[in-house]
Design a protein around this nucleic acid. Structure first.
Ligand code: MN
Ligand code: MN
Ligand code: MN
Ligand code: MN
Lengths: 217, 217
DNA sequence: CTATATATTTAGACAAATCTAAAAAAATAT
DNA sequence: ATATTTTTTTAGATTTGTCTAAATATATAG
């Protein structure tokens, strides 16, 4: 078993290593975990001793199979609790992340299996992210970022790339929530902002916002 | 806010001080919390600095109002999570305590209020213990212990005094669960064991077991 | 009321996780 | 290829919660 702190490191390393085969750097971990690089080096050594990461001095880290499974299990718990908070306790999608950060460390396999069942085995969390099954497997579908779509394209909102409450609240206000249909009308000359129709409503989005919205065409 | 560890001390002190106005002794805390008396003394000093307990050297501790409220809040969370585990996730009453020991430290007032609502504001946990409301108030009804009842007495099982899985599983096997009606038939001469009828089934109980069962006449 | 036993506290040490300041290695720029 | 910048590691200190061993206070028994 890992400590609360070790679990947080594993999870951060996992997220930082997604979408690239390169090793994860000390400073990157330090920034995400809100700590100093010196502390990260200390913890990395401990994780390496426990065979949870591969580590060579000055070369960053990668997760071992064991470390990756542990990390995915924490992600699984985080996302299942997020579904619970939204589906059962009526929280909004911008209110759940911090609570799930605590709940993800509750240590009971039986609890998680029963929670999964209670929630009817959801495949995705309230932000569209996939929920790994108990063996750590999940569909890794790569969606299009809204800022990459051409005028005339239609699609469905499948997820978001960014989980800050401010961003999520803003999307909610614009009606840009999971499952909504959109159609790109036009890319503005001036600043590249995007005109689109959400269901029937016409709105305009900055590229900065658009690049955090994931679309299935 | 208190640390995980501080919360555990407060909760233990609270439970040890129930049913007596005397102060709680260092050794009693050490035994319950599975630690050494020297460690308890250290922690007591910290809690006293934080105005959570009243402490005079060699005189044991009592909770301050602030400490008592903090303790009751942890008990509230513990019991609400136990209801959740039984009512929603179909755990048995003997399987939930350890999981609730972890969940009780999750720190979100909003979460607990919503959980309370989701569970329809239960008044008692799966062991019959009262659930404090968000202001820390609860009914403190004192029930009779089954070993004190006279032959001919009828009553309802309202709670238990002892929460070990072995004890709870045993009661379950005997059909002695919350809400069941009982009637005392006879107190055996030989060893004082108690003959009773549960609903319609006749059984015999040792005094040791009987004294942990709470009855409303 | 003194001797003994029990309960509690102190002193000093340790492990986990963190920090600051300084040293060392790697990356980059000229 | 050398100098400069950036990244990473080391050394040593700090905080939290724990421990053992020894000292001290309180309770109990003759
Ligand atoms: Mn989240
Ligand atoms: Mn999420
Ligand atoms: Mn319990
Ligand atoms: Mn209970």
């Amino acid at each position: 078993m890992q400590s609360f702190t070790e679990e947080n490191y594993l999870k951060i390393i996992y997220h930082l290593s997604l979408g690239s085969t390169a090793s994860v750097q000390t400073n990157a971990i330090a920034e995400k975990i809100q700590t100093k690089p010196a502390s990260v080096t200390d913890m990395i050594k401990k994780l390496a001793d426990k065979q949870l990461v591969n580590y060579k001095k000055y070369q960053g880290v990668t997760l071992t199979e064991k470390g990756k499974l542990a990390a995915i299990n924490i992600v699984r718990k985080h996302r299942l609790w997020e579904v619970f908070l939204v589906e059962k306790l009526n929280f909004k999608w911008d209110e759940i992340h911090d609570i799930a950060e605590e709940l993800e460390h509750i240590n009971s396999a039986e609890l998680i299996e029963r929670l999964d069942e209670f929630l009817a085995f959801p495949k995705n969390d309230p932000h569209g992210d996939p929920i790994p099954d108990k063996n750590g497997n999940f569909d890794n579908i790569i969606f299009n970022k809204l800022n990459k779509l051409k005028p005339g394209t239609r699609g469905l909102i499948m997820g978001v790339n960014e989980h800050s409450p401010a961003f999520l609240k803003h999307l909610e206000k614009l009606g840009l929530t999971l499952g909504k249909q959109i159609e790109i009308i036009e890319i503005t000359e001036f600043d590249g902002s995007i005109e689109l129709v959400v269901e029937t409503k016409k709105i305009s989005l900055s590229r900065e916002i658009a690049k955090h919205i994931l679309i299935k065409i």
